[in-house]
């Protein structure tokens, strides 16, 4: 088999960020909670590897801690999407054509009409801004995504003979869903999970950039970009660094997702 270069480079990129996050809990080059105004807007040096921001905070440390916010928000949001969407999709598929199916699918359409930014706006307008808003907004938007993917894939499995065989053995829909459907659509869900994870990182950056996500002093990549905009004329470095971090992280996840799909989807594998 051909070596999945995509998958490997994706895993390497993603691991770098995850390692940086893990490291940030025990060590960062500098403390990001301490503002050293005297050292503000410094170019990269031996002391500050990537320079400092407008408050004199170490950029590398900020990026490491900022990655926490991005990854945490994206993971929890994907968790919400899978935790709620997958059971809904399985239920809808198991009761195809029933009222329940109709209600679930209509509900999906309804949520699809609310882009995560709009959900975030609504929540923020009523409860005020916080990182939790971003999680909720992205998570809610993920629910119909997973519900649809699950339902579509599950429906095609339900038509197979081994499901009929299981039914003649007296197995009920729930048991069949868990034992026969879920394992056979897991690949697809893993791939979709990676895609939503990367979309979550992008969405979180966008939300915190406009101030609907993580609030200061919690560092986040989107927030850093918003702050950098003021300084874009004199120190574009402040805007480059968080942006490149986002691109690399998302690129890594997407490469991993594509690689996984090629690896797990027998149809594509055959085509090669």
């Amino acid at each position: 088999m051909k070596l999945p270069i995509q998958l490997i480079s994706g895993i390497i990129l993603t691991s770098i960020f995850i390692a940086a996050v893990a490291l940030s809990f025990v060590w960062t080059p500098h403390d990001v909670t301490i503002l050293t105004i005297a050292d503000k807007l410094q170019a990269p040096s031996e002391k500050y590897w990537l320079g400092t921001d407008h408050f004199g905070r170490d950029m590398l440390s900020m990026l490491m801690v900022g990655a926490r916010t991005s990854i945490a928000v994206a993971i929890v949001a994907v968790g919400i999407g899978i935790g709620v969407g997958v059971p809904l999709g399985l239920m809808a598929a198991a009761n195809r054509g029933s009222l329940l199916d109709e209600v679930i699918m209509r509900g999906n359409d309804l949520i699809f009409a609310f882009p995560s930014l709009v959900i975030a706006i609504l929540i923020t307008a009523v409860f005020g801004p916080s990182a939790l808003n971003a999680i909720l907004a992205i998570g809610i938007f993920n629910i119909p995504v997973f519900a649809r993917v699950t339902r579509g894939a599950a429906l095609s499995v339900w038509t197979l003979d081994y499901i009929l065989a299981a039914r003649t053995c007296g197995k009920r829909a729930l048991r069949i869903s868990v034992e026969h459907i879920l394992p056979n659509i897991a690949n697809l869900l893993i791939v979709q999970g990676t895609i939503q994870f990367s979309l979550g990182i992008l969405a979180e950056a966008g939300l915190s950039y406009v101030g609907l996500g993580a609030q200061p002093p919690t560092p986040s990549w989107g927030r850093m970009l918003a702050d950098a905009q003021t300084y874009i004329y004199n120190d574009p470095r402040l805007a480059f660094l968080p942006g490149i971090a986002i691109v690399m992280m998302v690129l890594g996840l997407n490469l991993m997702g594509d690689g996984l799909r090629d690896l797990l989807d027998p149809r594509i594998r055959r085509e090669r």
């Binding site: 003979d161 081994y162 009929l164 065989a165 003649t168 053995c169 007296g170």
Partner: peptide, 22 residues
């Protein structure tokens, strides 16, 4: 009832779709 179900079993046409591949 299960006791009745076990009296009848089925064999399908498609030797590929008849089994959970996992």
């Amino acid at each position: 009832p299960a006791s009745l179900r076990q009296k009848v079993q089925i064999v399908f046409q498609d030797p590929y779709g008849s089994f959970n591949p996992r």
